[in-house]
Design a protein around this nucleic acid. Structure first.
Lengths: 143, 143
DNA sequence: CCCCAATAGTTGCTATAACAACAATTAATT
DNA sequence: AATTAATTGTTGTTATAGCAACTATTGGGG
């Protein structure tokens, strides 16, 4: 049976992801923060001093991406990086004052973003959506 | 109320999309086809002779991306491009013999991919998933 | 017919994303 | 202690993704 284009759920997920990224990107533009850079900042606002390796784990990304995004965040002055004495291979990320101030502005924007995304979706539906996405993740990772 | 990292449905969708992309990428590697290049090919296998503009519309992508992907597909020998006489601004994409042959190999792989993605998910659940994704798309596009 | 709008593609730029190869450091093994 | 393993980051490359600015072509209004 030949599937047509719209039948692929993966394509729909991809489109949704692109639209979400475009939307949050526009919201973050004023703060000189790209979407994925913001994810690193979100983790740092929760807990300072994470290493790039820990960030890569938590964000489920290649260490390469984390290194480059961290480097950009450093250039923007939101963080600084330092090798801990215990392990000079690692690089810990710390918020600058500018980075801390940024959190107070951006966290409300992120929550407002989430409210818009979930508008008209009940918490039961949200749970179901998460369950199905988890199932899909399992399906492709079992391979 | 401060949301923690896992609470953002957009992050879950993003992760799922990345996993799906990684998976289909590995499946298509043998065919010298990148995931998004494959989307263009899928449309061409359905209907030959689309313009880059039409492809951009159907794939909901920037014309820039389409132009570059089409250029790569041309380099790989799967398509050729030609300006129609009626409108010399446009570029129509046509399958080469190599591109047609490729379709017979890749389409079954794409459908197998979809089967794996949807394993253990009922058609009712799939409809619900699509409905919720559509709702999210509407929410962010209304802005 | 001429100027201007709109349309279709291209080029340049920035930001993800993942892989391979590499350097520096640390841990493990003998 | 010396060699090898593993760990942590960086650099280079390819592939999306979208924006701005540009060229070429077409269509419309005067």
């Amino acid at each position: 049976m030949k599937l047509s284009f719209q039948d692929y759920i993966s394509i729909k997920i991809h489109q949704t992801d692109l639209n979400l990224t475009k939307f949050i990107k526009s919201k973050l533009e004023d703060f000189n923060l790209a979407p994925e850079q913001n994810l690193i900042m979100m983790l740092l606002w929760e807990k300072d001093g994470l290493t790039q390796n820990q960030l890569a784990d938590q964000l489920d990304k290649d260490k390469t991406n984390i290194a480059r995004m961290a480097s950009n965040l450093e250039k923007k002055g939101y963080i600084y990086r330092a090798h801990p004495k215990e392990d000079r291979r690692s690089l810990m990320l710390f918020l600058t004052d500018s980075g801390k101030e940024l959190g107070e502005q951006v966290i409300p924007v992120a929550e407002e973003f989430n409210d818009i995304v979930c508008k008209g979706i009940s918490s039961e539906e949200l749970v179901e959506l998460e369950r199905l996405l988890t199932k899909i993740n399992q399906n492709v990772q079992e391979q």
